[in-house]
């Protein structure tokens, strides 16, 4: 464990806590893409299939449980909670995310570390996570004004993978035979997708203005 990876995990955790706060405090999920939440639930379920078979550390197991449970809770809340689900922007959240799932699955079958069930699921989860934010970014562009908590949620979610890239660079130079090139390339793509969001987020912070993405 290094400081970059720990900071990345904490940033990821903060993003989930901010989203839970937004939904709990406002009893609303307006501006949140349910499709992105469903993709993230799939990412965690596919990536953490080894949670019961391979023990890495208490920290690792606890964080996996927290990520899976919180994301499933958010999806359930957006689908089932009679107050929250009324505020879901159903007509704006129209990204065809099934294509993202299909493309990630095909790519995982073609490019993986080993042709085993677990490794292909892992590669699938890495590719899917890289594009999982797309429905959310499209929704933000369509919904005009973005409320603070939603903006912070997306910001922390984007920042965490950027910190992971620093972690991979650090591990590359400090650990012999360390190679996580699938995660690294995918992580670069994932972080790049946030580039324009980061730009407008910085502008809104600098000008102390409301975050607004151009349509």
């Amino acid at each position: 464990m290094n400081i970059f990876r720990f900071a990345g995990d904490m940033t990821h955790l903060i993003s989930i806590l901010v989203l839970l706060l937004k939904i709990y405090a406002t009893k609303s999920c307006s501006g949140i893409s349910r499709k992105t939440q469903e993709l993230y639930a799939l990412v965690f379920l596919a990536r953490y299939v080894d949670i019961f078979t391979e023990f890495i550390s208490v920290y690792n197991t606890i964080m996996k449980i927290v990520f899976i449970a919180s994301t499933l809770a958010i999806v359930w809340c957006m689908r089932g909670h009679r107050v929250v689900r009324r505020s879901y922007d159903k007509e704006l959240d129209t990204f065809r995310h099934y294509f993202l799932i299909a493309a990630s699955l095909v790519l995982a079958l073609l490019v993986h570390e080993k042709f085993t069930f677990q490794e292909i699921l892992w590669a699938f989860s890495i590719y899917l996570e890289a594009v999982a934010i797309l429905p959310q970014l499209v929704l933000l562009q369509r919904s005009g004004n973005v409320d603070n908590l939603t903006g912070q949620y997306v910001f922390f979610l984007g920042a965490y993978r950027g910190l992971y890239i620093l972690n991979w660079i650090y591990r590359y130079f400090t650990e012999p035979h360390f190679s996580r090139w699938i995660a690294c390339v995918s992580g670069l793509v994932q972080t790049a997708l946030y580039a324009d969001f980061f730009y407008y987020y910085f502008l809104s912070w600098k000008n102390n203005a409301k975050l607004k993405l151009p349509a």
């Binding site: 990536r47 080894d50 890495i56 690792n60 964080m63 972690n167």
Partner: peptide, 10 residues
């Protein structure tokens, strides 16, 4: 040590 290629990251 863990088996090679084990995924120790989240």
């Amino acid at each position: 040590t863990r088996k090679e290629g084990s995924k120790d990251e989240l």
